[in-house]
Structure formats: structure tokens, C-alpha cells
């Protein structure tokens, strides 16, 4: 009768540095339900939005009712449940990535694709977002294309990969 598919969606990848970042934050906060907003902030900063499976992960770890978490997320305007665009390019602009050239990547994306951070292409194919440290500083500059972390990428490489994703090559 109860399939529960809607709350228990797909599993998060254990190797995604962003998952580790959230796990560390929850541990630091002692899994206190009171720390929900701060933990959601960490997640939103790492993903650029709050994917359903990330919410499910946090909900379970903090032993909170799903509706309580959803209520909090939809109450505050700074949380977002949707990534913009069919594909997302999330450029980390945390300190390490910034130092290693995140800005050059953003500049190249703007030059070649005409998209600034926070914008979506007119055909809704690609959304460009920035994150504050995704927890992969050793791989700086890091970019997450859809769900794959791209380590130590050059502006040229990332444009090529994006073009493959959105099918313009």
C-alpha cells in the first residue's frame, strides 16, 4: 500500500564530496534537529539548490518528519528546491577554487555560452550556478556538471564537456 517512493528516492553517492560535507556538518551539530536550517544552508551552498534526495538524507539523519523539513525549506526564500535548466553546471567559488581560477571558468562560460552565474539558457538546457566550497578543495578548481565532479578543470575543458552535455557538438 505504501510504496514510499517519494521520500526514499535514489541513494546519494558516497564519494560525492558534497555528501561528505553535509555529513560532517550534521556530525558537528550533533544531529540536533534544531540545527536543521544551518545544515540546509550547508547543503544549499554545496549544491546550489536542495535536491530531493539530499533532503531525504538530512531528514533521515536528523530523525525529522519529512513534512517538517519540507515546510522549513518552502518557508524561507533563500532555499530552492529546483535546479535551473535540464543540465546544471555548478562552479565552485570557494577560496581554494577561486585561487585556482574559478573566475576564469565563469568568464569563459559567459564568453562562450552567454550565461552568468544564476542564469539559465533560453532553451532551458543549461543552468549555471556557483557554490561556496563543495568540499573538494584538493581538486580545485572544481566544477560539478550534473552530478559528476570535474577535478582541476581548465576553462576550455569545461566548455567542451558542457557542449557534449547539451549536445551542441
Amino acid at each position: 500500500m505504501k510504496s514510499g517512493t517519494a521520500v526514499h528516492t535514489k541513494e546519494l553517492s558516497k564519494t560525492d564530496p558534497r555528501v561528505k560535507l553535509i555529513a560532517a556538518k550534521m556530525k558537528k551539530e550533533n544531529y540536533k534537529p534544531d540545527a536543521l536550517i544551518e545544515i540546509l544552508h550547508t547543503a544549499q551552498n554545496a549544491y546550489g539548490y536542495l535536491p530531493k534526495e539530499v533532503l531525504a538524507y538530512i531528514t533521515k539523519a536528523l530523525h525529522l518528519p519529512p513534512s517538517r523539513v519540507y515546510s522549513t525549506v518552502t518557508f524561507y526564500h533563500f532555499f530552492s528546491l529546483k535546479s535551473k535548466g535540464e543540465h546544471t553546471c555548478l562552479v565552485c567559488t570557494g577560496t581554494a577554487c577561486y585561487v585556482k581560477g574559478a573566475q576564469a571558468i565563469l568568464n569563459e562560460i559567459e564568453k562562450k555560452l552567454g550565461l552568468k552565474a544564476g542564469q539559465v539558457s533560453a532553451d532551458d538546457k543549461l543552468g549555471v550556478q556557483v557554490a561556496r566550497c563543495i568540499g573538494a578543495c584538493g581538486l580545485a578548481p572544481a566544477v560539478v556538471l550534473d552530478d559528476e565532479v570535474q577535478a582541476k578543470v581548465s576553462p576550455d575543458e569545461i566548455i567542451k564537456k558542457i557542449n557534449i552535455k547539451i549536445g551542441t557538438v
Partner: peptide
């Protein structure tokens, strides 16, 4: 009013 993650009521894991 929502159940779970704005989930259809019949698919709620808490009800």
C-alpha cells in the same frame, strides 16, 4: 497542507 515531501498522501511513509 502537505504530507511528507509534498508527496501524494497514499505514498506517505509517516501516515
Amino acid at each position: 497542507i502537505i504530507s511528507d515531501f509534498n508527496t501524494p498522501w497514499g505514498e506517505s511513509i509517516t501516515c
